[in-house]
Amino acid sequence: MTILITGGTGTIGSQVLASLNGQDADIRALTRTPEKAKLPPGVRPVGGDLSDIDAVRAALAGVSTLFLLVPNVADELTQAILTLNAAREAGVKGIVYLSVFKGETYADVPHFVGKHTVERMIAACDLPATVLRPAYFIQNDMQQKDALLTHGTYGVPVGARGISMVDTRDIGEAAAKELLRRDRSATPLPRETYDLVGPDCLDGEAIAAIWSEALGKTVQYGGDDLDSLEQRVRAFAPAWLAYDLKLMFRRYQQDGAPADGTQVARLTTLLGRPPRPYRDFAADSAQQWRAA
């Protein structure tokens, strides 16, 4: 039995591989540069990416279970649909697909719509898949280090409605558990869906207060300026992606992305413990920054 991990060298894929480490599983990781990939011991690199259907077909040969993470690229939807079709043709018996929290609701945010469309294919074709819907990643806020330490500002315009951010380590652990459950089953298992969320619904002011406590200094929320966000993102990402993220934060500001108790409880059952809170991330980060 063989598990193929896509995005294995990225933020989430590396957490999935870390959680699979020591689980006595045959694991491959799809990567554009197998000769340079830094992977855990025992993980076999496979050359290619999801934009190359021939490479995808070759990578899926002999694979029993697939972790499908498609990057934020202009043809994300096409890559996902083609890969799922190739997996079905290859006889893959278990799939774990990384979608997004609120994908069915945020109908004006491109990458949310694309992921929800992939979910529709999974349901319509009755694929043996677990759909994981992570909320906004807590670890994205590592990018706020300079603003927090230098200016005493939390600059992510999350608004006042609140979002239930999730720790990327919880995403990796949840994915690994579902991959192993499906891979070790003698037959394909029914579809499952999990919302991967944090235990707290936090707005911009609440997050700034958490950082104030963690850093021992006053931290202010930087406000809801979405045009400024778009311009900052354009400095290191394509214009279409910057606008896509602006639209996502506009919905966060308008509607929020809160989890309910049932969603948190279901994730707690899957993990075997409560999901990690934002406050722990802030405290750990502050300690690391002081030590450095």
Score class of each variant (00 low, 15 high):
residue 160 A to W: 03
residue 185 S to G: 06
residue 262 T to C: 07
residue 53 I to A: 11
residue 2 T to F: 01
residue 270 L to W: 06
residue 26 D to I: 00
residue 285 S to E: 13
residue 152 G to I: 07
residue 110 P to K: 00
residue 89 E to A: 04
residue 122 I to A: 09
residue 42 G to M: 05
residue 291 A to T: 11
residue 223 G to I: 02
residue 281 F to S: 10
residue 174 A to R: 13
residue 247 L to D: 12
residue 61 A to D: 08
residue 239 A to C: 01
residue 73 V to S: 08
residue 276 R to G: 10
residue 202 L to P: 15
residue 195 D to L: 02
residue 27 I to V: 15
residue 239 A to L: 02
residue 54 D to K: 03
residue 256 G to C: 05
residue 197 V to P: 14
residue 101 F to Q: 12
residue 139 Q to I: 01
residue 228 S to C: 07
residue 2 T to W: 05
residue 276 R to M: 13
residue 36 K to L: 08
residue 199 P to Q: 03
residue 220 Q to E: 09
residue 190 P to C: 02
residue 42 G to D: 13
residue 11 T to R: 03
residue 280 D to Y: 07
residue 227 D to I: 01
residue 292 A to F: 14
residue 246 K to Q: 08
residue 95 I to F: 02
residue 207 I to G: 09
residue 146 D to I: 09
residue 201 C to L: 03
residue 242 A to C: 00
residue 121 M to S: 04
residue 34 P to Y: 05
residue 235 A to S: 10
residue 288 Q to K: 07
residue 22 G to I: 07
residue 157 P to R: 00
residue 14 S to I: 05
residue 78 T to M: 02
residue 37 A to T: 12
residue 62 G to A: 01
residue 39 L to A: 04
residue 202 L to N: 13
residue 157 P to H: 02
residue 28 R to S: 03
residue 227 D to M: 01
residue 114 G to F: 05
residue 91 G to Y: 10
residue 128 P to I: 00
residue 14 S to N: 09
residue 208 A to K: 07
residue 108 D to Y: 00
residue 242 A to D: 04
residue 107 A to V: 08
residue 68 L to M: 08
residue 283 A to K: 06
residue 90 A to M: 02
residue 176 A to H: 06
residue 210 I to R: 04
residue 210 I to K: 03
residue 263 Q to L: 06
